[in-house]
């Protein structure tokens, strides 16, 4: 979102009242080696999944804290977005998947030698969750473990 001063009052209030975690510390893992030698994975909260995977369905009783695995070589034509709210501009991802999920850019960086290697699997979560407790306690740690099993050292996270 641009700086909030550009938004109408209603929109600004919505952004500011959306429940966000408040933390007072920050976990910190310095990269063990430069990115040009490291293995990188892409993780998005854009609600992406493969065509044929069950869509994400969130409700206020139970936010959808599940995740979907996206093999890194999944063709763009096989990726759908079930986070499809009027709250954001979908024309960008419809024109170019990289607007949210920059797989082609990462492959270019790999070819240039700016990234050591790309993980076999990338992962997707639902966005705009109003309660992230089970995500934090269950599914995010599960994905962290899968990433480490894949030898991943660096994660790039993108929202929608």
């Amino acid at each position: 979102m641009p700086h909030l001063k550009h938004l109408p009052d209603m929109k600004r209030n919505e952004m500011l009242t959306f429940p966000a975690q408040v933390n007072h510390d920050t976990p910190w893992t310095p990269p063990a080696r430069p990115l040009r030698e490291a293995r990188l994975a892409l993780v998005t909260s854009a609600g992406l999944h493969r065509r044929g995977d069950p869509p994400f369905v969130s409700n206020h009783h139970e936010p959808d804290y599940s995740y979907r695995r996206l093999p890194a070589d999944t063709p763009a034509a096989e990726i759908l977005q079930s986070h499809a709210s009027a709250g954001f501009d979908r024309s960008g991802i419809q024109r170019d998947l990289n607007t949210t999920y920059p797989v082609d850019r990462l492959r270019e960086l790999l070819m240039r030698g700016a990234i050591g290697s790309l993980a076999d699997s990338f992962y997707s979560f639902m966005g705009a969750l109003r309660n992230v407790a089970r995500l934090e306690q269950e599914t995010a740690p599960a994905v962290a473990e899968l990433l480490r099993q894949d030898g991943v050292e660096v994660v790039l996270l993108t929202p929608t």
Partner: peptide
């Protein structure tokens, strides 16, 4: 929040953020 979990489990992370006010809180 995802980045914090990943980082705590030994991965290094970097994220794109679209809402500065939330990112300031989540750290």
């Amino acid at each position: 929040m995802l980045a914090r979990v990943f980082e705590a489990s030994g991965l290094s992370s970097v994220q794109i953020s679209l809402l500065r006010e939330h990112t300031e809180k989540i750290r």
